[in-house]
Design a protein around this nucleic acid. Sequence first.
DNA 1: AATATATGTCAACATGGCTGACCTAAAAAT
DNA 2: ATTTTTAGGTCAGCCATGTTGACATATATT
Lengths: 199, 199
Amino acid sequence: MSTAPPAPGSAPTGTPADSAGKPAESEASAAADAPQSEPTARSPAETRELVEAIEWLFFAYRDFTSDPDEILHEYGFGRAHHRVIHFVGRHPGITVADLLNILRITKQSLSRVLKELVGQGYIVQKTGTKDRRQRLLYLSDKGMEMERRLAGPQRERVAKAIAAAGPEAQKAWCAVLAHLVNEDDRRAVEALISNGYVS
Amino acid sequence: MSTAPPAPGSAPTGTPADSAGKPAESEASAAADAPQSEPTARSPAETRELVEAIEWLFFAYRDFTSDPDEILHEYGFGRAHHRVIHFVGRHPGITVADLLNILRITKQSLSRVLKELVGQGYIVQKTGTKDRRQRLLYLSDKGMEMERRLAGPQRERVAKAIAAAGPEAQKAWCAVLAHLVNEDDRRAVEALISNGYVS
DNA sequence: AATATATGTCAACATGGCTGACCTAAAAAT
DNA sequence: ATTTTTAGGTCAGCCATGTTGACATATATT
């Protein structure tokens, strides 16, 4: 997706996210005000590599989201729409509550884009059978076509990047990404991602 | 930084970006409308791994940007401020034009946050010596302290993720990230990142 | 029958993108 | 020396997409 997760970080939307900067933090640094665990001591070299890794993430995310953003513009949509289209596409029949949990936005924000997508026929809603309060969400044919257009260039970009980085890069890449996710959420996200290949 | 690159992808402030979704694209897929190169044919298994990698990036970015976002809130700032603070911190004396090129936003947008940061004493400006039209940007002591507070938790997160993924993960991780950046910009970004460790 | 849940909706507001027009001072070109 | 270009700023307004709070409805659950 071309999203920069909500405001969290943005940045490049996404809005890619923001990173960190600067030299060898004197002890005073991060512990200054936050009730967090003391920052692990690191050598200047380690700090430097860390800062560089963070900046690469910023720039990578900035460009990663640029392809879909352009396409979305043709439709008059934004990143928020892409996120919804993506997750509905990957989890046909997903509920509004699940979507809210994934996107970490308010129902009012979701409502706005969802209304547009349903109104213009990209997403269809069906009343849940087990629980009739639920609105199960599906892509229409039109929605699937848009989803494919959005996904195409982004997958191409990621595929090339992984290929260029060598054969074993994919596992390492995903492992780091997984460990960037909050520990509390990691198992749930993993379940979501691996069971998501519905059809 | 907690940015989600501009809208591009958007999100957690690191705004996280949007990803892609869905099953084994029938040939028609991404080439449908875009004048791009034909999407490389991929097996369902390859597609699946690709989609999963993209989703991990979304969730990783979402959480990656969450730490600074909270701290920024204390100051009454947003991700946009973090991005500026970060790059000024890492490139003392950076010009407005360079910053615009990195952030890929308009000068009016940058102006808004820069004005606040300068007004509240987090950033100081000096007139360029070679070219007196330039305003060279530096963090004040106050700005450096904020920068350290913002960077701390984010570095901690990345350091732990890399450590958890194994020793050689860092190189692979950065290699993939570098190749996600637009090819045209890659060399410039690399130069920026590696010469950035100024002090 | 009472309560809790899933979802929707109205209204108002904040942030941070954007465009367009226009201004100044300094550098570079003629 | 005059003109043009460049670095930067500024005003005004718009748009996308977050937020909070209050309230409504239908269905499940107790």
